[in-house]
Amino acid sequence: MSTAASGSGPSATAAPGQQAQSHHPQQDTLGDADHNDSVLFLEPDTGTPSDSDVDSAFDGRSSASTSLASSILNYEYSNGRRYHGYRQGAYVLPNDDQEQDRLDLLHHIFLLMLNGKLYDAPLPHPPQRVLDIGTGTGIWAIDFADENPGSDVLGTDLSPIQPTWVPPNAKFYIDDAESDWVYGPDEKFDFIHVRGLSGGINDWDRLCTQAYDNIVPGGWLEFQEPEAWVLSDDGTLERATSMQQWQQLCNEAASKVLKKELRVGPTLKERLMKAGFTEVHEKIIKVPIGPWPKDAKMKEIGRYQREHMAMGIEPYTLGFLGKILGWSEEECRVMIAKVVSEVRDRSLHMYIRFYFTYGRRPE
């Protein structure tokens, strides 16, 4: 599971915020619309982890963000975690420092997948106005504003956790993407970016329609969404019984109780076309959980994804199993321990599909 709200080290491929060189991914590591059956080849097991496989790959990079005015920090606290207060209950994951670290780590994983690029859409030139929906820590919006000083970048989120010191061409609003958008006719966007909102949106068709209505003709919409479902190609997932139970329960809580789908990634291509977008393209990347693939790049991505998953099991369990299904904290803690143990099991060759889907509003 992606464990995402929107939102983010060292890397041999690209550092956060860098613009990478063009690349030509190999079929055995990266999947796109033409290669959805790509495979991740397994690294031979030598029995002992190499120095590059140790958990120190995660350097704890944090956004170290400073909150906005205290008058709007109406937070909720439970199970040792902090949650947003605005539109309470609309989003079940926390917004505390630990969660912000997870989101910034996820941002780095996205950069690795895109070779340092912040988006996959073929923008012909830097857009004048950019909207980042569900901006989280604001790290994507800040990076985009830094790389494109001529663009005006707006990030929106339910939580005021973004830094106060930001590029002059970036700003953040507290807003609910599911409410009516109130941008004027002269405030339409050239590019709208949505990332990691699976489990946070009730009506994705409406979101696509609102985005279409607020994009200038010729502008682009891009979704970057992990599919909240762990898979394996060699049958090892069958031994991860806790993981299977956990992801089934989380998805049932989200879709049947909260009415917000977690496995939305595979549906976005059709939704964009239904909303009227053209030149719709879908790219699928298999992201390993752990450094088990042979390919060096996917091994590195898997190392970070393992840490991201280990960090995300707790908030998803406390949110969906605890808050939604009514599990006690003790029951949640037992499940968390079991699933994290399987995430760190080197004999389980699990992965998650990440969907990069974009479309253009016709001229």
Rank of each mutant, 00 (worst) to 15 (best):
M1D: 07
T3L: 11
G7K: 09
G7T: 13
P10T: 15
P10G: 11
S11G: 08
A15K: 12
A15T: 15
P16Q: 07
Q19G: 00
A20N: 14
H23V: 14
H24L: 00
P25H: 15
P25T: 15
N36Q: 15
F41R: 11
P44G: 08
G47W: 10
G47L: 03
P49Y: 10
S50V: 11
S52T: 12
S52A: 08
D53H: 13
G60L: 00
S70R: 14
S71E: 14
I72L: 08
I72S: 07
Y77T: 14
H84L: 03
Y86G: 00
Q88F: 11
Y91A: 09
P94C: 05
Q98I: 11
Q98G: 14
D101H: 05
D101E: 12
L103H: 05
H108T: 07
H108L: 00
F110E: 05
F110S: 10
L111A: 11
G116M: 04
K117D: 06
P122F: 10
H125I: 01
Q128H: 15
L131F: 03
I133T: 09
G134Y: 07
T137E: 05
G138Q: 02
G138E: 07
A141Y: 11
D143I: 06
D143P: 00
F144H: 07
D146F: 04
N148P: 01
S151A: 12
L154K: 02
D157F: 01
Q162K: 02
Q162S: 04
P163M: 08
T164Q: 12
T164I: 14
A170G: 06
E178F: 04
D180Y: 03
W181F: 03
Y183H: 14
D186M: 04
H193F: 11
H193I: 00
V194G: 04
R195C: 10
N202M: 07
A211M: 04
N214T: 08
I215N: 01
G218M: 12
F223W: 09
E225R: 05
A228H: 15
W229E: 15
S232R: 11
D234E: 08
E238D: 12
N251Y: 05
K256S: 13
K260V: 06
K269P: 04
E270N: 07
L272W: 09
K274I: 07
G276H: 10
G276V: 03
F277W: 04
V280S: 00
E282S: 14
E282W: 04
I284S: 03
I285F: 06
G290C: 08
G290L: 02
P291D: 10
K294A: 00
K299E: 13
E300R: 15
Y304T: 03
R306L: 09
Y316S: 05
K323P: 00
K323C: 02
K323D: 12
G326T: 14
E331F: 04
R333F: 09
V334G: 09
I336G: 06
I336W: 13
E342K: 06
V343P: 01
R346W: 09
H349S: 05
Y351T: 02
G359M: 00
E363D: 12
